[in-house]
Design a protein around this nucleic acid. Structure first.
Lengths: 114, 114
DNA sequence: AAAGATACTACGACAGACATAGTACGATAG
DNA sequence: CTATCGTACTATGTCTGTCGTAGTATCTTT
């Protein structure tokens, strides 16, 4: 079975996370579930990859964190939520453009159909 | 201007090289020129990246090296040529399949048009 | 009371890409 | 006849994102 290698996806985990945060603020576990779901179960992000992406992106100013209790139920443990910043939105846009370019380039070297 | 980042292309340099070697055996400088040309000048592989890819892929059995003088002119300096192996062809095929899958996954997270 | 899902943090290792630098040969121009 | 440019590499070390492993702690369900 063909699997997505980390080298391929490298650099696009951030983009996936930002895509989700663009819709609404979210937190680790929820984001990982959404990535799995949006990719039809084809890609499951590793926990350490996810959380280190948070740290990196917050340091770079692409996201901001805040803690809050789950909204659904009254109580529960407080979680660390993340929200995309204006800079993060700009970065996301650039990564999308980069992706379109990369796709175009790589496809010149691909000769086997799916 | 949008540029291809190394993280994105990471893991696909090998695929590009193998694509070229599938057509005919070749050597470093020639391959780098072909990559540039095939990508319409959009991607220029770094020398060190190229040569370290050769070393790695030969070690992995995807390519074989041999030295030969340039065919065109009679004499000249001998170069190190590379030829794809059966294992390399298989690997290339797998990378193409992986690419198709990866593309499908990533596109779910891209919302900005080219 | 135990198990499983949730929600993280810490630490270290790995590998591909890259910067920098250096060697050496051949062809061409001034 | 020599300086420069293009060709054709090799060596070494750094950086960064990903991942393996491990541990902590809460909440829910059985």
């Amino acid at each position: 079975m063909v699997e997505i290698s980390s080298d391929v996806i490298r650099g696009y985990n951030d983009t996936m996370i930002l895509y989700i945060l663009q819709k609404a603020p979210s937190y680790g576990y929820e984001i990982s579930k959404q990535i799995k779901q949006l990719s039809d179960g084809k890609y499951i992000i590793k926990e350490t990859t996810l959380y280190s992406a948070f740290t990196r992106m917050e340091k770079n100013g692409y996201i901001e964190s805040f803690t809050a209790a789950p909204e659904a139920d009254g109580g529960g443990k407080r979680r660390t939520y993340y929200r995309i910043t204006a800079s993060g939105q700009q970065y996301y846009k650039e990564k999308c453009e980069e992706w379109n370019l990369t796709k175009e380039v790589v496809e010149h070297f691909i000769s086997v159909e799916a």
